[in-house]
Design a protein around this nucleic acid. Structure first.
Lengths: 134, 134
DNA sequence: AACAAATATGTAGTCATTACAATTTATAAT
DNA sequence: ATTATAAATTGTAATGACTACATATTTGTT
C-alpha cells in the first residue's frame, strides 16, 4: 500500500525514498514551519541513522521541485513549509509561534513595479497573537 | 556645522559617532539594501581603521533604535534599509537588484489573524524586472 | 547474483555573525 | 588642562548554520 505522500512526491519528480517520505510527512502533518535542525532532532528518534546532511539535501530538493517553500520571517533562521499555496505568515514576538493566514492579493495596490513579472510573493507580519494578548 | 544625519541620530537616541554617521549616510544615500559585508568593503576605503564588528554592532543598534529595518528577501543574506517607511521589496531573479515599491496595505484583505496586534509588515516579491525582460 | 545508478551518511570546511577582551576615544569633574 | 570614568571601536577567537565531498548503503536492472 502506497501512501499519498509517495504518490505526491512521484508526481513532482522526487523519488520517494524512506527519508524523503518521512521528512515530507513531518512537514505536511505538523505544519509547524520548522528549521532543518528541528526536523532532524525530531526524526532522528524515529530514524536513528538519519544524517543532518540528508535533511538539508532533501529540503533543498523539495524547494527545487517546488513542493516546499522557504520562510524567511526571521533573519537568523531558515524555515520550511510544505504548503505551497500563496499565504502569509505571522510571527508572534512573544511566544514565537508562526501562524498561517490567507490574504487576497488581488486587492493589494502595488506601485512602482508595473510591468515586472511577479513570480513569488511573501507576506510576513510580526506582532502579538491573540493568545498572548490575554 | 552639523549634518542632518547627526541630528537624526540624536533624535533617535543614537550617539552620533564618526563611524555611525558614515554607515547611516551610506545606507540613506545609496539606497542599495546592502549586506553588512558590502557596507564594510565600501567604507573601509574611506575609513581604513574600520572594523567589521563595528559595522555589525552599528547595524544592530540602528535596528534596535528603529532607524533601520532588516530585509530578509533571500535566506542566505541579511540586508539593511534605512528607509523605515512601510514599503515592499522586489528582487529580480535575473540581475539580483532589489527594488523598492510602495503598496497600500489598507486594501489587503487578511483572514485568520483577526484580533492579532500587527507591528511590522514585510512584503517581498521575487520575479523578473522590466529591464531584464527586454 | 552482479552490476550500475541513485541516495544517504559522516567528516571536514566555509562563511556570516557574535562573544569577548583590549584599545582608543569621548565626556565630565576637579 | 589633567585625571577619572564611561562609551565606542577594534581584533581575535568562537559559534553555528549550511555545504562540499568522499564513502557507504540502498535500489533497480539485467
Amino acid at each position: 500500500m502506497k501512501s499519498n505522500t509517495t504518490e505526491y512526491l512521484k508526481q513532482h519528480r522526487v523519488k520517494p525514498s524512506f527519508q524523503r517520505i518521512k521528512i515530507f510527512d513531518y512537514l505536511i502533518t505538523k505544519k509547524n514551519h520548522p528549521t532543518a535542525d528541528i526536523i532532524y532532532k525530531e526524526l532522528v528518534n524515529e530514524i536513528p541513522t538519519l544524517s543532518k546532511t540528508t535533511v538539508y539535501n532533501t529540503l533543498k530538493l523539495f524547494v527545487e521541485k517546488e513542493i516546499t517553500q522557504i520562510i524567511n520571517i526571521e533573519d537568523n533562521e531558515t524555515r520550511f513549509d510544505a504548503d505551497i499555496s500563496t499565504h502569509g505568515h505571522f510571527k508572534c514576538l512573544n511566544c514565537n509561534t508562526i501562524y498561517d493566514f490567507s490574504f487576497d492579493d488581488k486587492n493589494i495596490n502595488i506601485f512602482d513595479i508595473e510591468g515586472f513579472d511577479k513570480i513569488q510573493t511573501h507576506l510576513y507580519i510580526k506582532g502579538i497573537c491573540k493568545t498572548c494578548k490575554n
